[in-house]
Write a protein that binds this DNA or RNA. Structure first.
Lengths: 159, 159
DNA sequence: TAGCAGATGTTATTGCATTACATTTTTGGT
DNA sequence: ACCAAAAATGTAATGCAATAACATCTGCTA
């Protein structure tokens, strides 16, 4: 099992966390010949501001403030589309919001732990769970493409 | 494991299916002294029209057509809120849409199988899977309130 | 039967996301 | 270096999802 809950759901040096994520994103994009343009990187940087998912319109506001002029929705949504396609961020459907992916270099299914108290979201990937899901789907004769699992509750810090 | 995939993801007598769901909803509401008013029942009936999730605004259109006058959003959303509270329907976050619950009398976690081809959604409940989820969360020190699992892929019929 | 809670009607607004089209920038082939 | 194609960005407008705030009606119960 891999998880970033020790960072997302605990005190940690977040600036370091954020910088590491950005550095990895740059490396990954270079390796893939994908263009992490300044606009895209700015959005990714804002998303990694915290471990709480951010809505698109919050990003629009923040980006407008940063750049000193009105940024419009398609600008941000295009950046988000790119980041999603590269697996650098995830969308949390129940929140209409976006979160940085802590392990974009690894192919994985989506599993999120959402704290109802502090709002921080940790991501996990567990083979045993993915297999249990595959088994359950198979018993219903269902061929799985992918899944999204959102677990609500209280993180370690907030209990 | 309980599942309605044999109905939702196969040919079946859907009128019977729909009527059974409505009858059970009526019985359940009576038993709970919850008021399944005509407006609420009309929405539930429309939702059970098929096994594909329906958006609120589609319901608004259909209801307007049925009733011969313009039905407004709060009317439908209030009915949906009631049906959600009674566990008679579920909201599928990734689709912003609603689906009838095939076993509203049983307390259960949310597990949906969404066919990308025909759009039909089946619901399952599997203790082993719920336990695997609990275990995974526990390993991250997370206290679970509830969860929502959406599995995308191809149903039996569409493979 | 008066009063209260629950349910419904109505108007307006907010938030999330996309469509369509114009313009600019980057890239690769010559 | 130059041109054409592709990729990225800018801009205006719109559509869909959901809620806020307030007025009115209905049905139960004391």
């Amino acid at each position: 099992m891999i998880s970033n809950s020790r960072a997302a759901h605990r005190d940690h040096d977040h600036e370091r966390c954020q910088n590491a994520a950005l550095a990895q994103a740059r490396a990954l994009c270079q390796h893939r010949s994908a263009r992490l343009t300044p606009a895209r990187e700015a959005v990714l940087h804002l998303i990694w501001h915290s471990h709480r998912p951010v809505g698109a319109y919050t990003l629009i506001e923040q980006l407008s403030a940063e750049q000193g002029h009105r940024v419009l929705p398609p600008t941000v949504y295009r950046a988000l589309d790119f980041l999603l396609a590269q697996g650098l961020i995830h969308r949390i459907p129940s929140r209409n919001a976006f979160i940085g992916c802590p392990f974009p270099e690894v192919r994985h299914r989506n599993l999120f732990l959402l704290c109802r108290q502090c709002g921080a979201v940790a991501e996990c990937s567990a083979d045993t769970l993915d297999q249990a899901i595959a088994t359950t789907a198979a018993r219903a004769g269902f061929a799985v493409d992918g899944h999204n699992l959102e677990i609500d509750g209280l993180c370690q810090q907030c209990q």
